[in-house]
């Protein structure tokens, strides 16, 4: 069992932290942005200073904004000079190779991907970057396996495999809603009953966090062209308004507040 730190801005980070705790790791978590609006990226150095000295695994899942991911990596550079802890970076908005290029220790950076809810998932995507060392890949694989899910090796791509597919489903459903083809409930019902999807794409987007979905699509657009990955106007607007879905009480749907 390892000393793990998890830094991120969404449900994915939160769920990985919870999973790591449940599987016996000692976890320290820093959540900001979509998951905790009271904290900000600027507080990461302070958080890192307070860390127990020995950190064995660093998990990064900063997805809504690429600049923030870059900032997290810069803070990690400052804190872990010359160290060899693997940095497991969620590739949802930048490939492992690109994240490696932001790091002072690219050999330590290994990509991974998954989509919440993790309780439904039996796998993690494992994506080594061009610089990842065999040692850090092995450590990353062992850590993901220790969370009770199979690590599946795939090539490095921004967005990962399944998150790319899901983000585009949510986006197309959002275009359908934007164009007033149908009501949100009817779109979700149609996809569940007409083609056996486990969740409606709009409800799923609300659950993942619309800031996160927009983060994935924006990064795909930057990497592969805006024409294909253009964010649906309704989705972009909700994200801008801070209506990020279930966690914030409002997204495509409205949720009762506790």
């Amino acid at each position: 069992m390892s000393n793990v730190i998890v830094i991120g801005d969404g449900l994915l980070a939160q769920e990985v932290a919870t999973l790591a705790e449940q599987t016996g790791h000692s976890v320290t978590t820093f959540l900001y942005g979509g998951m905790d609006r009271s904290t900000q990226i600027g507080q990461v150095p302070e958080f890192l200073r307070e860390m127990a000295n020995r950190v064995e695994i660093i998990v990064e899942a900063s997805i809504a904004h690429r600049q923030e991911k870059q900032a997290v990596l810069a803070h990690l550079n400052d804190r872990f000079v010359g160290s060899d802890e693997p940095i497991l970076s969620a590739v949802l908005n930048a490939s492992a190779t690109e994240v490696g290029s932001w790091s002072r220790h690219p050999v330590n950076v290994v990509g991974w991907a998954a989509i919440p809810p993790l309780v439904d998932s039996g796998v993690f995507e494992l994506m080594p970057g061009k610089h990842s060392s065999a040692n850090s890949i092995a450590l990353a694989r062992d850590f993901l396996a220790s969370l009770g899910k199979d690590p599946v090796l795939v090539e490095d791509t921004v967005g990962g495999v399944f998150p790319r597919i899901i983000a585009n489903l949510v986006n197309e459903a959002a275009f359908t809603l934007t164009e007033q083809v149908a009501e949100a409930e009817d779109i979700d019902t149609a996809m569940k009953l007409g083609t056996n999807y486990p969740y409606g794409p709009l409800a799923w987007g609300d659950r993942i966090g619309l800031d996160q979905v927009v983060g994935i699509l924006t990064a795909l657009g930057e990497a592969y062209g805006q024409d294909r990955y253009r964010v649906a106007p309704r989705l972009a607007q909700l994200a801008q308004a801070g209506h990020w879905g279930k966690a914030s009480g409002q997204g495509f749907y409205t949720y009762p507040t506790e």
Binding site: D120, S121, G122, V123, V161, F162, I165, I166, N196, P198
Partner: peptide, 10 residues
Amino acid sequence: LLVRKGGGFR
């Protein structure tokens, strides 16, 4: 595999 096991699609 990733779509089935990662997302619960049939």
